[in-house]
Simulated assay, not measured.
Amino acid sequence: MNPAIRATRKHPACFVLLIDQSYSMSGAMSGGRGASKADAVADSTNQLLGRLVQRCFVDEEARHFFDIALIGYSDGVGPLLQGPLTGQFLVSPAQMAEAVSRVHTDASGTSWPVWIEPRADGETRMCAAFDLARDLVGSWVARHQDSPAPVVINISDGEATDGGIDDLAQRAAALRQLRTDGGELQLFNIAIASQSETPQYYPDSPNGLPDKYTKALFDISSVLTPRLVEYANHFATAAGRPPLRAGARAFVFNADLAAMVEALSIGSNDPNFGNPR
């Protein structure tokens, strides 16, 4: 393993987002000031994508530092990008830049590009989403052994409806076995709560999590690498949170919108990815 590997045009990084779009995502986001969980996830994802794409522009040219995939799951599982990218999975920053559907401006006047819209209906085929990610990233890894370790971030508010906890754990284990010369795949989980539960950021233990399904998402999450711990601690200090402890997992529970964007940024800004060239 070579943790110093960085994303380059010759050796791009791989970033895959799995988004729960089941009916339960229509519920109100805890602390979301009336916004649904689906709204909050769409906003945070679009903001993160905007940052990723912007990082790849050098001298007004979109350079191929990343391969990006967005996968939604409810009754079915498939790619989320629309317009010219409909039906496509891994796409380049240049393709993303050409496929913005609109620009959103919030009440404060802050604007960001939009690629995906909120959706909330159907069941939660999370196991199938992990299977698809395993096939997609497995194929990518076979072609990019000299690239940084791939990252998969799963965002969900509940349990899988197409398998039990053990089934999900098996899928996650298969995902985490994928690796490049840059290291083992990093699996992040962002668990969303409807109730006013105490937020947890990169805990080292499932203690205090409200139910067995949330604890299962903690259990399947990767242990943060030392470099990611350093990066996460930077955000923790800025937010007045205590530093992470040994064994911190790539797991966030009940974060507000700003913290969700932070979590997505940490997942996609591993210093192994950082400063692409």
Rank of each mutant, 00 (worst) to 15 (best):
D162S: 08
I266F: 06
M126Q: 12
A142L: 10
S222C: 12
K212P: 04
G50T: 08
L70S: 11
V223A: 14
G109D: 07
S268Y: 10
A149V: 02
R179H: 14
C14S: 13
H234Q: 15
R55S: 08
F65S: 03
G109E: 06
T8P: 02
T124C: 00
F251Q: 13
D121P: 00
A142F: 02
A191P: 08
E262F: 05
Q82D: 07
S222L: 10
D59I: 02
R176P: 02
F218K: 07
M25S: 01
Q200I: 06
M260C: 07
A142E: 15
G182D: 00
L48T: 14
Q195W: 09
A128Q: 13
G267V: 09
Q88S: 13
S24K: 05
L175V: 10
F188P: 08
G72H: 04
F253W: 12
Q200D: 01
A40N: 06
A174E: 13
R179N: 08
C127T: 14
A232H: 04
T8Y: 03
D146W: 04
C14W: 06
E262P: 07
A169F: 00
R143N: 09
Q170G: 10
S147G: 03
N189E: 11
F235T: 02
S265Y: 12
H234L: 15
N207H: 14
V16G: 05
D75I: 04
G72K: 03
M96S: 05
E98H: 10
T225K: 08
V114R: 02
N207Y: 10
T225P: 05
G138A: 05
L185Y: 07
R249Q: 15
V261I: 15
N254R: 13
D131F: 09
D106S: 02
V58A: 00
L178A: 11
Q47W: 03
A142V: 01
A129M: 11
L48M: 14
A174Q: 14
L209V: 11
T225R: 15
V141I: 02
V58M: 04
A169T: 15
R33W: 03
V151W: 01
N189D: 07
G158K: 01
A172E: 10
A133K: 02
R179V: 02
P210C: 11
R9Q: 12
L185E: 03
L85K: 03
M260G: 04
A172T: 05
R9N: 07
